[in-house]
Structures are given as structure tokens and as C-alpha cells.
Design a protein around this nucleic acid. Structure first.
Length: 243
DNA sequence: GTGAATGTTAACAG
DNA sequence: CCTGTTAACATTCA
């Protein structure tokens, strides 16, 4: 479920509840919930993989981790870790990590690094990348402070599309290649969201989950590389290694 | 039944 | 103290 685009979709699905009052809140999760009863949902948005539900007295930060899911007016057999009742409507969050944030969201989050945000600024990301000249690009793409909202699928797809080998050294990648990578991050993020909505997600992967390179037919390498403990799919023939 | 999966962090070892 | 590894969490699917 959860990379940045999925959270944008989730925030959209929460919009019908904005302006509605929480009549009951509960779930087995550890977050205190007594502060929510009778409060109006003022805003629902996301920052990277965080879903943010803002109320006058605080914001719920919901993280879906690897297995989280959300159901609207439906209930699973297992208990919800968080649920919000809005009158006759019920929103169930399963296996999520919820936390109360206090303070202005603008002082907690930098929207300029969120790959899905209208405030996303590639220049800011480029500048942050300069702080990690010796890192592998495959690792840095997972850094939520730099590429907010990128997960394993997005990083694999955009490295493939920009033809960059995951073990390329950030400081050695030419500027125009970085620019191409940033463009692909933005465009693939939008594609990801569109495919989620169209329920065609996963049908257009070029590298993730694939066995051979769609460009040259070479067998893709499938292994963990760098320090990120996640499976990486890449083509050693068409993805250039900058070192 | 087994293993792997769109994730993160606390605990531990060296 | 810093850094890297492991465990833990909990679910669904092939």
C-alpha cells in the first residue's frame, strides 16, 4: 500500500470527512484518543508516507508501515488499531502506527521535498543531495528527508527510467542525469497515483518485479545492493554506473 | 506451510 | 560514542 502516491490517494479519500465531527475514536493502538471526541476534522493531507489528520487541538499522524490498510464503512475480522466514527460513518485503520502531533504542520514538515506535493522543489532536493556526495544513489533515494515519499518501487522504477545504476555515487552523477532522475520521480509518482485509482497498479512496471530488461532483454539483477536492505532490480547493461 | 512483500525503529553488538 | 546488524511489529498473497 504505502508509498507517497498511495498516501495522496488516501488523503483524497478522507476529504468527505473534512468538516465532520469525530463522535467516537478508538482502537488498540497506543495513541491517546480522548482528545479527539467532539472535534472537527479540519484538514486531511499527506507528507510522504504520513497521513495527516488535523484538528484544532492536534494532528493525527498515521503511518501504514508495510501492512497498513484503511476501510471506509467496512470492517475486517481483526481489530482496528485506530478507528474514527463521524456520526454514521466509520473509518477503520488496520495495523497502522498513529501518533499525535502538536504544533503547526508547516513548522514540522518541509513540503518542498515531498515528491507528490504542489510545493515540491527540485532545486531544494538537488541542494540536499549535495550533502551526501559519497552515498550510493540507491540508498539515498530511500532517505525520507531528501526524497520524501519514495519507497522501494519508486526508487527502482526511477533509477531504471533515468538509466542510473543503483551503486552510482551521488557526487559523480552528471547534473543532467540528476535532472532526468528528478523529472522521472515526479512523473512516475503521478503515474503511480493514476494507476492506483484505475486499479492498474503494477501492470506497467519496467524493472520492479521483472525478470528481464524491457529495453535490451538482458536478465535483470535482483539483489540487495548498498546498505538498503531491500531487493533491488536493475539492468547492468543499460543503467550506467557513475563512480 | 513457507517466504516474501510498497516500512520504520528500538535494541543490541562491536 | 558511533555504526552497523538484528529483531520486532503485524497481514496478505503466491
Amino acid at each position: 500500500m504505502p508509498e507517497g502516491p498511495s498516501l495522496v490517494y488516501l488523503a483524497e479519500q478522507m476529504q468527505p470527512y473534512v468538516g465532520k465531527i469525530v463522535t467516537k475514536a478508538g482502537g488498540y493502538g497506543e495513541m491517546e484518543k480522548s482528545w479527539l471526541k467532539g472535534k472537527k476534522l479540519l484538514e486531511a493531507r499527506s507528507w510522504g508516507k504520513h497521513l495527516l489528520l488535523r484538528f484544532a487541538n492536534g494532528t493525527i499522524r498515521v503511518h501504514l508501515m508495510l501492512f497498513g490498510s484503511v476501510l471506509f464503512n467496512k470492517t475486517k475480522k481483526v481489530n482496528a488499531s485506530l478507528y474514527l466514527q463521524f456520526g454514521s460513518d466509520l473509518v477503520n485503520f488496520y495495523v497502522v502506527q498513529a501518533k499525535k502531533l502538536v504544533g503547526k504542520l508547516d513548522s514540522i514538515y518541509d513540503w518542498r521535498t515531498d515528491i507528490m506535493s504542489s510545493e515540491w522543489k527540485p532545486a531544494v532536493v538537488r541542494k540536499k543531495m549535495k550533502d551526501y556526495p559519497d552515498s550510493f544513489i540507491g540508498d539515498l533515494l530511500m532517505d525520507q528527508e531528501v526524497f520524501t515519499g519514495v519507497g522501494n518501487i519508486i526508487r527502482i522504477e526511477v533509477m531504471f527510467r533515468a538509466k542510473i545504476h543503483p551503486l552510482s555515487i551521488v557526487g559523480k552523477i552528471p547534473a543532467e542525469v540528476i535532472n532526468s532522475l528528478l523529472k522521472h520521480i515526479r512523473s512516475y509518482g503521478k503515474e503511480f497515483l493514476a494507476e492506483k485509482k484505475a486499479k492498474t497498479f503494477g501492470k506497467n512496471w519496467e524493472a520492479y518485479g521483472q525478470k528481464e530488461c524491457p529495453r535490451d532483454g538482458q536478465t535483470l539483477k535482483i539483489k540487495m545492493v548498498g546498505r538498503t536492505k531491500r531487493k533491488t532490480y536493475f539492468c547492468t547493461h543499460c543503467q550506467e554506473l557513475y563512480k
